[in-house]
Design a protein around this nucleic acid. Structure first.
Lengths: 353, 353
DNA sequence: TTGCTTTCTGATACCGCTACCAATTAGGCT
DNA sequence: AGCCTAATTGGTAGCGGTATCAGAAAGCAA
């Protein structure tokens, strides 16, 4: 006879940590350690527990977690440019992860503000949260990062192009990704490749451009400044840049935009001019956001695992928060994610001359 | 000297139910009864407790509540078409609200499946969650709703066009919104107004069309079937529909697309044909999703308060879950939100003939 | 007043998980 | 092998509420 006693209070069929522990033949405490990714569990034990977790399809009760945990897990994510597909993917990823972890994610919207105001806001925020996630473009702000660091609040930047002391970051290798895309275009036979830069206030923009530039040169193609236009990551700016690029006497046969929204704009301009994509003009983007597949033809682009990055950011932060109270502040880490070149329908060999 | 002992685990300065109880000179249980609005507390006692609550500025810890309460607050949101801007806004809204409420929102992705499979999945889901939110297009599925209702799981549909027994819903008045938009176009001087329908599997599509149709007629404009095209809410389908519409001998001077993605597609086609928007052709959309402001010119469209609707859905569900255990299942409600016609740059009076 | 029912209130035991510390085991060195 | 230190593991006690049931107070009839 089993322990059928149990209180009459027992509700739903949710699997608890005790059941997992019993199945794995360890104590609940050990299971807890595994689910929290603590590192002082023997590999073999971890495996057994993991298997039990998987078989029982266990997922920790967030309410219990946050109740028991001494970590006041409130984490803020400060965003600033709400109208980008990139950001919304990031939000979904982070929020989803947060709901699984019982940490409270508070969203703050900080519009363009003066450094002094930013500083004040950061100081105020530091009093109510345990950690902060900074997506672009705020991830570049030294005043926010500095103020938060001074208050001992761990910060983690997402998709910044630059790795700084004090601030951990989660990102992809923008340089290499842009380089691969450029090489891809070259291998298709293009030599006149236009480039639309990203917003200058984001270091990732520079990295992407550097990747383009370097790869062009390493393939023996001289950089033609007339083929490079400044953009600002917006559809509108992509429109302008594309007009400029296609106005050249010998226009590019391919245009590499620093993000998908601008690439979509390029397609639109091309169509308006009677150019077929990709037959007459190849267009490629960057980020693989919603727009990449919304537009027609669908964009060849660089995929960033945005949701995974958001998750990782939250994880890192949680760990840091937990560590911090344990003593020494950990070294900032630089977590590089793998990107991927996604081929769709917007690129092809250049037209015959 | 006060009871400074307390465990070393005690964290933040949050006021607990015990402190309120001590201040009020009653037991924690009584305080709990008061905060939950139970009716078997003497009036005098209630007042004392209320005052203590106010003075201490106490608010119950949601995590503890959901842990101790019999209500297993796990709520599922089942989505199916992840690549729509509409959905991502919905997700952000719901997730954000969830994180504030300490209820666990689990996201499930159910791709197109056979009724039998859907039924099985619904039955399985019913065992692990306390409530379900159904955004489009799943909100139309009678088998999911039916199965869940049979299992006594409260369901709430978002943005369905139809109000059914058993299923509460949160939506806007699609008919009226479409009607207003049509009237707006007419007031601008348009008489040849094209319409691109939404996906036929969503009842909201029919409502929008009905709004268009009715308003046209009430203004004495005969419905021209050649000006109506079937669409499927995708950019691609908008492209096709726009081509058809603009191929007419006397093409429409305005096109009303049933959502923003399709409207964006219309703009693209118009541009490709050398038509300026809005000078030569007015284009309006529906939903006010990200695409509405990404595209250029920015779309005049109908704004749905998507995030607010997601919040409301969650609230309703939470209330229902809590009530259910109290006895009678409540009547399904039909919560209508106000929409708004947002004028931007894609509409204008028709060109001179 | 007494006896008995009906409210109201309180004591106790947990909800599921984690902090803390003690116990155990593994690993390293003489 | 024998001893000592470090790495794993387990036991216990809550986190802040609520369900349940028992006890106390109040209401009412006799």
């Amino acid at each position: 006879m089993s322990t059928a006693r149990r209180t009459r209070r027992r509700r739903g069929t949710a699997v608890t940590i005790h059941e997992v522990a019993r199945k794995a033949g360890v104590s609940p405490m050990t299971v807890s350690r595994v689910t929290n990714g603590e590192d002082n569990v023997r590999e073999a034990t971890r495996d057994i527990v993991m298997r039990a977790i998987r078989e029982l399809n266990y997922s920790p009760n967030p309410a219990a977690r946050s109740l028991a945990g001494a970590t006041g897990t409130r984490i803020a994510m400060i965003y600033s440019n709400p109208s980008s597909a990139y950001l919304s993917e990031l939000l979904v990823g982070a929020l989803d992860k947060a709901s699984k972890t019982a940490c409270q994610l508070v969203l703050e919207k900080w519009d363009e503000m003066k450094p002094a105001a930013e500083k004040a806001a950061a100081r105020k925020l530091a009093q109510s949260v345990a950690g902060v996630i900074l997506p672009p473009p705020l991830c570049e702000s030294d005043v926010i990062a500095g103020e938060l660091a001074a208050a001992q609040i761990p910060v983690i930047a997402i998709a910044t192009g630059r790795f700084r002391a004090n601030v951990s970051c989660v990102r992809i290798d923008d340089f290499r990704a842009a380089s691969e895309m450029t090489a891809h275009l070259i291998s298709l036979g293009h030599t006149r490749i236009g480039f639309i830069k990203g917003h200058p206030n984001q270091t990732a923009s520079a990295q992407r451009f550097a990747g383009y530039e370097t790869t062009l040169e390493s393939h023996g193609i001289a950089l033609n400044p007339a083929y490079v236009q400044q953009g600002y990551f917006t559809y509108r700016s992509g429109l302008d840049a594309a007009e400029q690029l296609l106005d050249r006497k010998r226009p590019p046969t391919a245009i590499f935009a620093s993000n998908d929204d601008m690439a979509a704009a390029v397609i639109s301009v091309a169509h308006r001019r009677g150019l077929e994509v990709p037959k007459d003009l190849s267009v490629v983007g960057f980020d693989d956001t919603l727009t990449a597949t919304t537009v027609w033809p669908e964009l060849t682009t660089i995929r960033q695992p945005i949701a995974a990055m958001a998750e990782a950011a939250l994880n890192l932060l949680l760990r840091k928060v937990r560590q911090k109270k344990g003593g020494e502040a950990a070294e900032p880490v630089d977590h590089l994610f793998a990107h991927e070149l996604i081929r769709r329908d917007s690129d092809a060999p250049p037209p015959r001359e």
